[in-house]
């Protein structure tokens, strides 16, 4: 189990939403760079997936986005050369590269998100928001595989009697309809029994609670508060104009001052937070093992 998987689903969701929000809406190059590097570092250290085969997807995509922007966007004041009579500008090239960094970064974050937020975690978050829905979804998830299995059994049983398995299409369609109709009554029958089992265990009493196997610990609390503070710093700095950056018509000079440095550092910490947690846990283990 990786350390970040152990974090409470709500805390993890807050983190992912925050970092992706910044990554998607603030296009300052430093922010984008940290976003990409943070996501990539998370991917690497989590050992999440086959990095080799992924490079085959991300690198061509990166190049494509970086190329497409200068070919179609002719804004900017510094032409590098002309293609079919259209100027290819330095600004468009650089913006293309930043765009590619942004897209790749966001895709990697999404990837991390799906790896960390498994269906039961998402279900749990949904359950916190709408308790009735969570039970319904849980029951549906229980029902679907059961339905599929029974349907297979019924089809096999019919085939074992030589029914609905001749070559003719009408026979097959009729068979499929028959089996499906049988499955509908089977489902109803089944639901009756399930509802009996639910009633027998007190479903319908007033004041139902929702139990979850996850628990929000102090660690999760600290993690969430840190995330939110960093997010506030980044957004605050952005609102105050510390990291304003323009690509068109002319690239604005990167203006490094105390304010912008603080914003960049905040976001860098934020983007590398999962990486740092993983590294810390890994080191801890190493330390433990060496002590043993």
């Amino acid at each position: 189990m990786k350390a970040f998987d152990e974090i409470d689903p709500v805390a993890a969701a807050v983190y992912f939403v925050s970092v992706m929000l910044v990554g998607m809406f603030i296009s300052a190059p430093m922010i984008q760079l940290f976003s990409l590097l943070g996501a990539a570092a998370f991917c690497l250290i989590g050992g999440r997936g086959e990095i080799k085969s992924d490079l085959g997807f991300y690198i061509p995509m990166f190049i494509m986005i970086a190329l497409i922007n200068p070919l179609f966007s002719h804004n900017g004041v510094t032409p590098l050369f002309f293609l079919n009579g259209n100027p290819v500008t330095l600004e468009a090239v650089i913006y293309g590269i930043v765009l590619a960094v942004m897209m790749t970064g966001i895709l990697l974050w999404c990837r991390n998100f799906t790896k960390v937020m498994t269906s039961d975690k998402l279900l749990y978050i949904m359950g916190r928001a709408v308790p009735a829905l969570s039970l319904t979804v849980s029951m549906a998830l229980r029902f679907v595989p059961m339905f599929k299995r029974q349907m297979k059994k019924v089809s096999a049983a019919q085939k074992g009697m030589g029914l609905y398995s001749s070559k003719s299409y009408t026979d097959r369609i009729r068979g499929a309809l028959r089996v499906f109709a049988a499955m509908v009554s089977w489902s109803l029958e089944n639901a009756m029994e399930t509802s009996c089992a639910m009633k027998a265990r007190g479903y319908g009493l007033k004041g139902r609670t929702n139990f979850a196997i996850f628990r929000f610990t102090l660690r999760d609390c600290i993690f969430t508060v840190t995330t939110l503070l960093l997010l506030a710093a980044v957004i605050g700095g952005y609102a105050l104009g510390y990291i304003d950056f323009y690509y068109y018509p002319r690239i604005s000079a990167a203006d490094i001052n105390a304010g912008s440095a603080a914003v960049y550092v905040s976001f860098a910490v934020m983007a590398f937070l999962p990486f740092m947690i993983e590294v810390k846990e890994a080191l801890k283990w190493k330390y433990f093992v060496s002590k043993i």
Binding site: M139, R142, G202, Y203, I213
Partner: peptide
């Protein structure tokens, strides 16, 4: 009733 063993065990107590 539910899809996970732990949830099934908890179901009655939730009710």
């Amino acid at each position: 009733v539910t899809d996970k063993v732990w949830h099934e065990l908890a179901f009655g107590l939730e009710n």
